[in-house]
Design a protein around this nucleic acid. Structure first.
Length: 470
DNA sequence: GGAACTCGCCAC
DNA sequence: AAACGTGGCGAGTTCC
């Protein structure tokens, strides 16, 4: 018989985790029902206007003429019309080999009517997946998302009814529209506390790479900056310069993190090139990309001898090789050992006592134990904070969790106290409980004002007890 | 009429 | 040698 939690600690973590989640579920997250309904109707009218505009276009009339009837929500039908009937070459294909109709593929075609369709899609997503779900799921003005510990193969959590873990954040317009529906209890304020770089820190406990350890331990060092400097061949690197900041962020999201998840140089090069727009029909052109110094990024790269996409790919290949064989050599050796170990045993164990077994690929074998244990850091803190809140009979409540973040509905009177407790539990008590943690862990906090919505949270210093000024 | 599938898209 | 990890959900479609 296979028991997945291999240790009593692992079993206990999930058992107590479920009970702590249960209390958060029961508490729920307050919504502004009136706002949801008004915004939903507003979106519906906006969608209808755009649909009318689309239906008057030549593009649509031709589509209808050829196929008899048209459902603009049908991606299979759109794919057939665009790529089979109009014989347009798809910008890229789906995993099953058909012409893709996703945002990237349709945007690339530069057809105004398709841009209207993309607008409609986006608005429908906001209306149907979020606002409408809040209205449907709410009970007496509170939604009660479920937090599950029994679905994810990595022993992470999942959330449903509604899913609390995929509420828009990056797109500011969508973020505001949806998060403006979510409120604390009257007279309270929302606080979100997240572990910074927890997966990278947990990975370090597995591989113990000295270079990575010093990157994490030395607050003056900057891994993403160092990589950006190397990738874009910048001599006078200055992490405070806006153009260099832009390159740092592109490197972090287009090279470093994808590499940790198991991506490789060709994909990285395409993403990096796509991000700054140097890639136009495979041509490498001057004057492309974000501004850099006197010119643009593509001017700079061309001046450094990277004069084509192929040269850029070769360049990233060299960087990747250096990344794993020189910079993070010990990390690389661990990945190799770890993968061999799985091939021999047929399973991998996490530092938190969970066993992943079954058929897995190399990337899965490497990622699962890191992803799981990183979440377990959050889970342990969640349980402990829930215990303190429950035992001390204070009024602040935990109302949700997003993999590496906890959301609180705080009584303003308790703000200073709970901040202190959160800081202690997450940063001091956790490493005492999980002895395998070999680097400091840290949290960032965001807070909204009293009676403000989730869209209003701002960076907050839990030690000085004041908002950070940006 | 529902199960199972594909596709697209939101989060970490 | 191979090549981005984990989820949920809405809509459309196909199959039984």
């Amino acid at each position: 018989m296979e028991i997945n939690p291999k240790t009593y600690e692992a079993y206990k973590l999930f058992h107590e985790g479920i009970l702590a989640f249960c209390r958060a579920e029961q508490q729920g997250f307050r919504i502004n029902l009136h706002y949801c309904e008004v915004t939903k109707n507003h979106l519906t009218r906006k969608i209808e206007r755009k649909e009318r505009k689309l239906k008057e276009s030549k593009f649509y009339l031709r589509w209808k003429q050829v196929l008899g009837s048209v459902n603009i929500n049908s991606n299979p039908a759109l794919s057939i019309y665009l790529y089979k009937i109009l014989k347009i070459k798809p910008a890229h294909t789906t995993p099953t080999g058909k012409g893709s109709t996703n945002n990237e593929a349709l945007s690339a075609l530069n057809i105004p009517e398709l841009n209207i369709l993309l607008d409609i899609r986006k608005l429908k997503k906001l209306r149907d997946t979020y606002l409408d779900a809040f209205i449907r799921e709410q009970v007496k003005g509170y939604i009660h998302p479920s937090f599950n510990l029994n679905f994810a193969v990595t022993f992470r959590s999942s959330s449903a009814n509604p899913n609390f873990q995929n509420i828009p954040k990056r797109d500011k317009e969508s973020m505001r529209m949806v998060r403006k529906a979510l409120y604390p209890r009257p007279g309270h304020q929302l606080m979100e506390v997240d572990y910074s770089g927890i997966e990278v820190r947990v990975a370090a406990a597995y591989h113990k790479d000295p270079v990575m350890l010093s990157y994490i331990k030395d607050p003056t060092s900057d891994m993403h900056g160092d990589m950006a400097k190397q990738i874009f061949m910048i001599d006078d690197w200055d992490r405070n310069r806006p153009d260099h900041k832009c390159l740092r962020s592109a490197t972090k999201n287009g090279f470093v993190f994808p590499q940790f998840y198991g991506s490789y140089y060709k994909n990285n090069a395409m993403v990096l090139a796509g991000e700054w727009g140097g890639l136009a029909d495979g041509k490498w052109e001057k004057g492309q990309g974000c501004p850099l110094g006197d010119g643009t990024l593509s001017d700079h790269l061309i001046s450094k001898g990277i004069s084509s996409m192929n040269k850029f790919i070769d360049h990233i290949k060299i960087i990747e090789n250096d990344f794993w064989n020189n910079r993070f050599k010990v990390y690389q050796q661990w990945k190799k050992r770890h993968w061999k170990g799985y091939q021999k045993k047929g399973y991998v164990d996490s530092l938190t006592g969970f066993r992943c077994s079954g058929v897995m690929g190399r990337n899965e074998v490497i990622n699962y134990p890191v992803q799981g244990a990183a979440f377990h850091c959050l889970l342990w803190s969640f349980i402990e904070l829930d215990r303190v809140i429950h035992e001390e009979l204070i009024d602040t409540r935990i109302i949700g969790q997003i993999h590496d973040a906890i959301i609180f509905d705080v009584n303003p009177v308790e703000l200073e106290y709970i901040s202190k407790v959160i800081k202690r539990v997450t940063c001091k008590d956790l490493p005492k409980a999980f002895k395998w943690i070999n680097v400091p862990v840290d949290v960032d906090a965001e807070l909204a004002g009293i009676d403000e919505s989730w869209s209003d949270i701002r960076d907050y210093d839990m030690v000085k007890n004041k908002f950070k000024v940006s």
